[in-house]
Design a protein around this nucleic acid. Structure first.
Length: 222
DNA sequence: GGATCGATCGGCT
DNA sequence: GCCGATCGATCCG
């Protein structure tokens, strides 16, 4: 049976930016072989609608991104570069493709198993990236479309300690290229100065101010 | 510390 | 055929 601290579907059915912001501080839990693996969410990104040219939904519905069009509170897990996996949680109303990418956790439970799967010992390297946390928590495409709000879920989110506004930083999403708006819209949220936030950190963790040139010239090179 | 590159393969315009 | 919501190793300064 599930704890009452499980985040309900209504939480995920809201506006995607609200969900993304609200997921910081909550606890992602993975049940594996009767063991609890968990981590506090410290970095997320929002992908919203087919008009978001950084979203997998930008070309419309396909077999891969079908979960994004499904009901909120379900997992969207995809494979990238042939070897990595990334976990999203579907948001907003069913039929509208939107999701929050979980980019980094602060590991809480099951550190030994995470270290074994990751091949590293440093807690700051266990789950500080979208593919790293999937490897640490044994998340792959078998969990695509899994209902994270079901009573028997093996992957879900529990209520954690809220993160105050002054500790939240927003900025452009990591790894997004091409379209100017997609590159610059501040849909990345992370906990200020947290050691487990992934690379792509800004030069200095300031609340917002102007853009601080996430990357220099690298597009014109090739 | 920053830049560059290879791994590796499913899904796609 | 091409390319990616990444990572880790390597090279350079």
């Amino acid at each position: 049976m599930q704890m009452t601290s499980l985040l309900p579907r209504d939480f995920f059915a809201r506006d995607t930016l609200q969900v993304a912001r609200g997921l910081l501080g909550q606890v992602l839990v993975r049940l594996l072989d009767g063991q609890r693996l968990s981590g506090r969410i410290v970095e997320v990104e929002a992908y919203i609608g087919e008009d978001d040219l950084a979203s997998h939904a930008r070309f419309g519905r396909t077999a891969r991104n079908a979960a994004m069009y499904g009901p909120p509170g379900h997992a969207y897990v995809y494979q990238i570069y042939g070897l990595h996996h990334c976990l999203n949680i579907v948001t907003g109303p069913e039929g509208f493709p939107a999701a929050v990418l979980i980019r980094a956790l602060e590991p809480l439970e099951g550190l030994e198993g995470m270290q074994a799967r990751r091949g590293v010992a440093d807690p700051a390297l266990l789950t500080s990236g979208p593919a790293r946390l999937c490897q640490a928590m044994a998340i792959d495409r078998r969990l695509d479309k899994a209902d994270m709000c079901a009573p028997d879920a093996v992957l879900f989110v529990e209520i954690g300690a809220p993160v105050p506004d002054e500790d939240i930083v927003t900025g452009p999403r990591v790894g997004v290229q091409g379209d100017l708006r997609a590159r610059t819209v501040p849909w990345r949220f992370y906990v200020r100065n947290h050691p487990c936030v992934s690379r792509g950190r800004t030069t200095d963790d300031r609340p917002r101010t102007t853009d601080d040139r996430p990357r220099t010239k690298k597009d014109d090179a090739r």
